[in-house]
Amino acid sequence: MVRYTSAHMTGGAAAGAGWTAAHRRRRTGRAGALGAAALALALPLAACSAGGGSEAPTGGSSSSAAGPAPSPSQAPTVDPAAYRHALTGALRPLDSALRTVDGAREGGALDKALDSAAGKAETAAEALETVAAPDNARSGTSQLATALRALGQDLRSARGSGGRCASSPRVELDTAHGPQSVKEAARALKALGYDTSLRLPRTERARHRRLANGTFVRDGSRGGLGRLTVNNGTSSDAVVTLTRGTRTAFSLYVRKGAKATVRSVNSGAYTVYFTTGEDWNGGKRSFTRGCSFEKFDDKANFRTVRVSGGTQYTVLTFTLNKVFGGNASTSTVPPGAFPS
């Protein structure tokens, strides 16, 4: 809930009461057949004589015994050199695409490079899923193929939205699981003597940029007597923007848990917008994480008038935190429609 109150002052002395506002936040093994070899054992046969003695068969005595059956043949192991060649062939296009990502400038060029690298990662994964690997590298090859699929998804997800409240793709990749999984699978294969030769793109740590409390993000001409105080009781920094028609009068940065005052507000009816979040990007005039964009449904009216014995002017206080019983409604604003 957001509360702000207005009071009229005569001769600089504040008087009157005000109004309140509601703030709503916004993933085979191969079964080897064991051939059963039948061992044929030929037993010598002896003919019995009438006298009960044994009699050798006519033509002399002979005995025969079968020799040992041949053992089942085993498939020859995959030649490590052939596997290395296949591994390099599967990964070379991806490595080239990742290097392009590494050198691309943020914006359209980086987004295009990310899309291309994502496709190359998925193609490499498909190749590794069918490649013949030595026995000791089968598990690592499968692990790498799975990691490459995850990398492809992360590369696509990291693309910048081009709008407000968008972290840098390099920041998004810094906390993604795909690149880390690729590193782990590559280390496992390298320990067996198989080099993956993949250079993952550089990433950036999340930033926490903030302006000083009370800084004007934008300030127009002010010459009235009106006064605005913003008390930010939320858990995020905020920027409050007042507009008249399509023109921005001023935008004020207020840190969480702090308050700031704008003096000399001109008379007029203003639409009051506010955005909250983390990490202020001055170039986009927006936070990059945890953003919300809202406005009050009712306008804020400032008046400065001459009266007998002095001047009356408006004093408003906005309290940007939930207030029980607030009666001024707010609406969510599309990020692209938020005034800059």
Rank of each mutant, 00 (worst) to 15 (best):
E129W: 04
T130V: 11
T130C: 04
T130M: 11
V131G: 06
V131E: 05
V131D: 05
V131H: 06
V131L: 11
A132T: 10
A133K: 02
A133W: 01
A133E: 01
P134S: 04
D135Q: 13
D135G: 09
N136Q: 15
A137G: 11
A137I: 06
G140S: 13
G140L: 03
G140M: 01
T141S: 04
S142N: 12
Q143R: 07
L144T: 00
A145G: 02
R149H: 06
R149M: 04
A150G: 14
A158C: 10
S161P: 04
S161V: 04
G162T: 04
G163Q: 11
G163Y: 04
R164M: 07
R164I: 02
C165W: 08
S167D: 14
S168Y: 09
S168Q: 09
R170V: 09
R170G: 08
R170S: 13
V171G: 09
D174Q: 15
T175L: 11
A176W: 00
A176L: 06
H177L: 13
G178C: 09
P179A: 07
K183Y: 07
E184M: 12
A185D: 07
A185N: 02
A185H: 02
A186N: 05
A188T: 15
A188Y: 08
A188K: 12
A188L: 13
L189S: 07
L192S: 10
G193A: 14
G193H: 08
G193F: 05
Y194W: 03
T196V: 10
T196K: 02
S197P: 00
S197L: 15
R199H: 06
L200Y: 00
P201Q: 03
P201K: 00
R202F: 03
R202M: 12
R202D: 10
R202G: 13
T203I: 01
T203H: 00
E204V: 01
R205Y: 09
